[in-house]
Computed example of a mutant assay.
Amino acid sequence: MPIIKSNKLLFNADYVVRYEAGCQARLIEPDNMVSSSMPITKSDRVSILVWNIFKQKRLDCMRLLEEYADNTTLLILQEAQTTPQLLNFIHSHHKIADQVPAYAFKDVYSGVMTIANIAPIKSIGFKEKEPLIRIPKSALVTQYQILDHKRTLLVANIHAVNFSFGLKIYRQQIRILLNQLVSHEGPIILAGDFNSWSRQRLHLLYRLIRKINLKMVNFSSDIRKTFMGRPLDFVFYRDLKIEQAKIVHTNASDHNPILVDFIIS
C-alpha cells in the first residue's frame, strides 16, 4: 500500500488521503461525491470506537484495534500515523481509511483517520495550525449511505487545536467543522479529541453544540482522559438512539477509547 509523496498533500486542507486494501493511496477532492448502493451497515445499528491512539507509540495499540476491528462499524481515530503496522491493519481487515494528514515526518503522515468497511460517498478535510507551535491539527467529515437510502450518516472526526492564547483559533476550528453539519438532513456523529481543558473552551463547545441540536453521550463510569480536571474526548450525535456506551481502560495510549452502539432512528 504505497504512500503518496506530495507537497499538495501536506498543505492543501481540502484534500483527504484514502487508503484501501489492494489499492494505491490516493487523494480525494472535496467535490468528489459518488453515489453508492452499499450502506455502511446492513441493519439499523452503528457501532463506533473513538480513540486518540497517541501515534501508535505504545505496544498494545494495534492489538486493541485488532480486538475491535470486526465488531465496530467505524473506527474514529486521532493521531493516527501511516506506519506499516496501521496500513497492514487496513489491508488485512479489508478496510477503507480516510485521513487528513496534519503533518509528515519521514514519509509517515499523522492526523485524524476514519476507518470503515465501505468507502464514504463524500469526504472533506480541514486543518488548523496550532497558534504556538504552528503544527496543524486536522478534522474530517465523511458521509455514508445508510440502509433506507433516503438519508446519509455524517461522521465528523476532530483533533482540536491545543494550547492557544484566548479562544479565537479554537472557536474558528470548531465553527468551520460545525458549518458542515448544520444543513445535513440525517443522522450525525461528531467525535474526537476536543482538547477542552479549560472552562472557557468547554463552555464554548457546549454552546456551539447546542446551537445545532446535537446531544452528548454520557457514561455511567467516566474514565475519559482529562486535563486540568476536564474531559478531552467527546461523542455528540443526532437522529440516533444510544444502545450502550462505555469507556475501555487501557495503557495502549494516553487516552482511553470510547465505544458507543447507536440505533438509527
Rank of each mutant, 00 (worst) to 15 (best):
L147S: 12
I146K: 01
V182I: 15
F165N: 11
L178V: 06
H203E: 12
Y144T: 02
I158W: 00
G166W: 08
P131G: 08
H159T: 04
K129M: 12
R230G: 08
T250I: 09
H149E: 13
L259E: 02
N251C: 14
G166I: 09
V217G: 10
D193K: 03
S123G: 09
L153W: 00
L205F: 05
T250E: 06
A160D: 02
L132H: 15
F163N: 14
H149L: 13
R201G: 05
W197N: 06
F227T: 11
Y206W: 12
K241T: 14
I169D: 06
I158Y: 01
I133T: 15
S198W: 02
N117Q: 13
F262Q: 02
K215V: 07
L153R: 00
L214P: 01
K215R: 15
E185V: 08
D239I: 00
V182S: 13
I133M: 14
S183N: 14
G192T: 07
I135H: 11
R201V: 05
D193G: 11
N117G: 15
I189A: 04
I247Y: 01
P231G: 05
V217K: 04
D148P: 07
I133F: 14
T152G: 10
P257E: 04
N256A: 11
N256I: 03
Q145C: 13
F126Q: 01
L178C: 11
F165W: 12
L214F: 07
S220E: 14
F227I: 11
F234G: 01
I121T: 13
K225V: 09
R210S: 14
K122Q: 12
D148Y: 07
R224H: 12
K225E: 10
G186M: 04
N218T: 15
N162E: 06
D254W: 08
N218W: 07
N213E: 13
F165H: 12
I176H: 14
L132I: 14
K215I: 09
L147E: 06
N195T: 07
I176K: 15
K127E: 03
D239V: 01
E128R: 06
D239Q: 09
D239T: 03
Q244K: 15
F236A: 03
P231Y: 02
Y206T: 10
T152V: 09
L140S: 04
P231A: 07
S198F: 06
F194V: 04
Q143M: 10
S164Y: 03
M228Q: 14
L204S: 05
L167C: 09
P120D: 03
F126W: 03
I258H: 01
Q180H: 14
I121R: 06
R207M: 12
L232M: 10
N195K: 04
G186S: 09
I174D: 00
E130S: 13
G166K: 10
P131T: 05
K241Y: 11
I223W: 03
L167N: 05
Q172G: 13
V182P: 07
N218M: 12
R134Q: 15
S221Y: 11
D254F: 09
F227D: 10
P120L: 02
S138K: 02
D148N: 15
N179I: 04
E130L: 11
I118V: 15
H255E: 09
D233E: 08
K127F: 03
F236D: 00
S183Y: 11
H249K: 11
N213D: 15
S196Y: 01
L205E: 00
D239P: 03
R201S: 05
L140H: 03
Q180W: 05
E130A: 14
K127A: 07
G125C: 08
K137F: 07
A139R: 00
T226A: 09
